[in-house]
Write a protein that binds this DNA or RNA. Structure first.
Length: 542
RNA sequence: GGGUCGUUAGCUCAACCGGUAGAGCAGCUGACUCUUAAUCAGUAGGUUGUAGGUUCGAGUCCUACACGACCCA
């Protein structure tokens, strides 16, 4: 790096010219695209006049920097320290201190620029999430005047020695600087930032740039999946990848997306679950497999639902659902401890204690208690009579609740009376067989299966079974699902003949788990919506 | 699918009962060697989401549409 770079100025010049030209060319197709989307109105030019003026000014500034000998688009940069690291090294410098002779190089986006005549301060933000101040003195820098051509949002590389200002702020006393890239568009308001949610989702890069807590949420999410991989790998699990495009989308009750493969001329579905393929792998002889993958459900969007979301699914031969339950407790509490330094986290003002063991409640027992039944929920006749009395209404085009299939009846009552009221973390245990077509019958409780769901703050965090491995029973369950489909329930599961064939070769006793990664991330980051932990949530195109 | 609210300058927001659409930041010009959202002086920037309607006059009222937020099913 050089104050007045002499390396290949000719090349730099040419590169800069290309860069500027390229940027101008970049405008034309964008205008066209906007014109297309505004359906032939001639709005864009007038509407964006102010923006275009600023962009043109920035292009002129770029040209001016190139004329001074700076490269418009350098190919690499190599800071000696991140901003965060410098603050670690010098946590509380004394005002006015010189902090050694070591020359440091920092690089980052210029968020603030304060020009005081012959002295300029800039605040740079880099990928560490930290910010570092640099100061530039006219009498030390030949290229000082070029700072006038630096705009907010540009990236800058700055070399120099460290000191603390009068007020004690750690600052790089620049002996050289170099623009790394120009921002052609103005940053959001430096004080208020970007607040409109739509803009934050559509232009997440801006959200990340100016809202540090957003970046933190995604860092936590990344660390969480990393922890899960380390934990499972340590137990001897193998991470695998199974098909997203599936002929028969199985493993869950959900409407799938449909897509078409041209060469095979077949309509495939995007997967709604990882389950049935992972179980085939247990049949194939893997003892312990997991996948962290995207599911796609063609359903509504809410604070806890996005049409594409991420699941961890694991299958562990030899284990039953209680073994899996212990794994969930250990994994969750260890993860929360590692990332937040405690097993008690605060989610939207509610303290959740993930220290094992978590309380357990019985699915049917809790339903009876919270809904106020004086009978066993498995007594279908009384359940329907009670429902007919308490929930007589029906939405347009739908049957009254009491007349719907038993699985829908249970799901609905659970959604009304139980789930929203569970603060947790808590395990809901032993679901009715009618709502669990892939889980093994309970070894001692007729009508129930060996299944649990971890629940917190009214959200299902996961789902686990002793996996059904009796192929004849599985076929019957599928056939009952098929009957529901035939009766108009398009969320009922499809019969997967190939999966049944696999089961007929014998799947050893196996415990399985699905864990929602997005909801885990919501809890860790303490954010109210799933969209706050999905970088680019699904939006209608503009 | 229903309800409520919202959409005004690049960003964040104003605009009373329907009467010439404003401010801060960003931009531009200038001043300034310890600033911290720097400050100071000046300056430019608008088809008020789209299309209709009512009215002498619409950002404001009405209708439809688009996009979004929140709540409900």
């Amino acid at each position: 790096m050089s104050d007045n770079p002499d390396r290949e100025p000719e090349r730099g010049q040419r590169t800069a010219a290309e860069g500027a030209q390229g940027a101008e060319q970049g405008q034309a197709p964008e205008r066209k695209t906007q014109a297309e989307h505004s359906q032939g109105e001639q709005r864009p030019q007038t509407e964006q006049r102010s923006l275009n003026e600023q962009r043109e000014q920035r292009l002129r500034n770029l040209e001016a920097l190139v004329e001074r000998g700076f490269e418009a688009h350098p190919y690499a940069y190599a800071p000696t320290h991140t901003a965060a690291r410098l603050h670690e090294l010098h946590p509380a410098p004394e005002p006015g201190d010189r902090l050694g002779d070591e020359r440091v190089v920092v690089a980052g986006r210029v968020l603030l620029l304060r020009m005081l005549g012959k002295l300029t301060f800039a605040t740079l933000q880099d990928g560490s999430g930290g910010r570092i101040q640099a100061s530039f003195q006219k009498d030390k820098l030949e290229a000082y005047n070029a700072l006038k051509k630096v705009d907010l949002g540009d990236w800058l590389e700055v070399g120099g020695t460290l000191y603390a200002t009068k007020t004690g702020e750690l600052t790089v006393d620049a002996d050289a600087f170099r623009p790394l890239v120009k921002s052609l568009r103005p940053l959001p308001d430096k004080h208020h930032g970007l607040t409109e949610k739509e803009a934050r989702y559509r232009q997440r890069y801006l959200d990340l740039m100016v809202n540090p807590e957003v970046k933190r949420a995604f860092e936590l999410r990344g660390k969480a999946t990393s922890y899960i991989r380390r934990y499972l790998d340590g137990l001897g699990f193998l991470e695998v990848e199974t098909p997203v495009l599936q002929a028969v989308p199985g493993g869950a009750e959900a409407r799938p997306f449909v897509t078409h493969h041209n060469a095979l001329d077949y309509d495939f579905h995007l997967r709604i679950s990882l389950e049935l393929y992972l179980k085939r792998l247990i049949v194939g002889g893997f003892d312990a497999v997991y996948e962290i993958g995207r599911n796609f459900r063609n359903e509504g969007i809410s604070y806890k639902h996005n049409p594409e979301y991420t699941m961890l699914e694991l299958y562990w031969a030899g284990k039953d659902y209680l073994d899996i339950l212990a794994l969930v407790e250990t994994l969750y509490s260890g993860l929360v401890q590692e990332l937040l330094g405690t097993t008690k986290l605060t989610y939207q003002g509610t303290v959740l204690d993930f220290t094992p063991p978590w309380p357990r409640v019985d699915y049917t027992g809790e339903l009876a208690k919270r809904a106020g039944f004086d009978f066993d929920p498995l007594d279908e006749e009384r359940l329907r009579a009670w429902t007919a009395e308490k929930h007589p209404g029906a939405a347009a085009g739908e049957l009254p609740l009491a007349q719907r299939p038993l699985n829908q009846l249970f799901d609905k009552l659970y959604d009304i009376y139980v789930e929203p009221n569970l603060v947790g973390p808590v395990f809901v245990m032993d679901h009715p067989e009618a709502i669990s077509p892939l889980a093994k019958r309970h070894r001692s409780r007729p009508g129930l299966v060996e299944r649990f769901e971890p629940v917190a703050v009214g959200m299902e965090l996961g789902n686990a079974f002793s996996e059904l491995n009796d192929p004849l029973d599985q076929r019957e369950r599928f056939e009952r699902q098929q009957a529901l489909r035939d009766a108009g329930d398009d969320e009922a599961q499809m019969l997967d003949e190939d999966f049944l064939t696999a089961l007929e070769y014998g799947m050893p006793p196996t415990g399985g788990l699905g864990l929602g990664i997005d909801r885990l991330a919501m809890l860790l980051a303490d954010v109210p919506s799933i969209r706050d932990v999905i970088l680019f949530p699904l939006l209608r195109p503009q």
